[in-house]
Simulated assay, not measured.
Amino acid sequence: MVTVPAATLSHFRRFSLFNSPYAAHDRGCAIDCYPESNRGLSPVAGTVVDTRTVRAPERPYAVAEDHLILIDTGDHVARILHVDPDVAAGDRIAVGDDLGGMVRSGFFGPWVDNHVHLGFRDPDANPYRAAGSLPVEVDVSVRALDWDGGGVVREAAETYVVLDRPRHPDPGSWAGLAVAPGVVLDGGCPHYEGGGVLPALGDAVPVEVAGTRVGVADGRAVTWDDVTLRANGRPITGLSLFVARDADVGAKLVCPGHDFAPGDRIRVSATR
């Protein structure tokens, strides 16, 4: 287990360990860090080992190539993706340094904001393989925000809408959607294979959204039930869940092809 400290996360407005369809995030083995701007800030300190351009899945809204930056942190090799590097092998890096411009590649869903992907490998492990990173934990307290499924559309884009609830009572602290007192839900519910909770729960603990069970937690990992989320009765793809310290933490509904507009009142429900 590798711990990402609070001082590191203070350079970012949001983070997620489970909100991804890729194996690199299975069981929280990577973390996505969302910067305030479109510059890729380094979440680690160390020496750049290598940079490499990699092919990305073809998507009409994305560039065809992504980039891998490897940084030797002393104890581990950090794998960083989604940044077009302005650094090279041998460069010394501090936490918060600008690594380069953000890349929006085919690894992104169209509703996903730009972010820095971070994983860690043991020094003797192959750092180029997509899978095989160590589990990641975060050294921050999270505030669990109750949500009854309701809200007003604050932002509407082609593939998603963001509601004005739940509201962040103390921007600057870390908060996310509550599934239990002091426990936050993370991930793509239910459109990605699984999700997670912070901090960990026990074995076979039911997880609810808007009063309906949507999955089961075993430790940090959540397995979704066979559920459909609906907005005002219409099926949607799901909820995009993360931990945020910015004021705009409201529920993000993934719903390509929607006809919602800012000001619309929405009620989210789940059917099993």
Rank of each mutant, 00 (worst) to 15 (best):
N114G: 12
S141Y: 04
A89K: 07
D139N: 01
G74H: 14
E137K: 03
V153C: 08
H115A: 11
A89I: 00
V152Y: 01
D86S: 15
N114I: 15
A157V: 06
I69H: 06
H82T: 03
A78H: 09
P127F: 08
P85N: 10
L81F: 13
P110Y: 11
V138D: 02
W111R: 06
G101P: 00
D113C: 03
A130H: 15
H115L: 13
L118V: 09
N114D: 14
D139R: 00
F107M: 07
R154D: 15
D148N: 14
A156G: 12
L134E: 03
L118A: 05
I80Q: 09
L81D: 04
E155L: 12
I80F: 04
D113T: 08
A88F: 05
D124P: 11
N126Q: 06
G90H: 07
V140I: 15
L70D: 06
V95Q: 07
S141A: 04
A144C: 08
I80V: 05
P85M: 01
V152G: 00
L118I: 03
D91Q: 00
Y128D: 07
G106F: 03
T73Y: 10
A89L: 10
H76Q: 06
V138A: 03
S141D: 08
M102Q: 14
V116H: 03
P135N: 05
G109M: 05
V87T: 11
G101N: 08
H82Y: 13
V138E: 04
S141W: 02
I93R: 08
D75V: 00
G119F: 03
I69R: 11
V87P: 03
V112Q: 15
H115M: 09
E137A: 01
G119K: 02
D91K: 01
D72L: 04
R121P: 04
G109S: 13
V77W: 05
L99W: 02
F107W: 14
G96C: 06
E155T: 02
A144K: 05
R121T: 14
V95R: 12
D148R: 15
D72N: 12
A131C: 13
P127M: 09
G150S: 15
G74I: 00
A156S: 15
H76G: 01
H115N: 09
L70M: 03
N126V: 00
L145D: 13
Y128Q: 10
A89Q: 13
S141I: 06
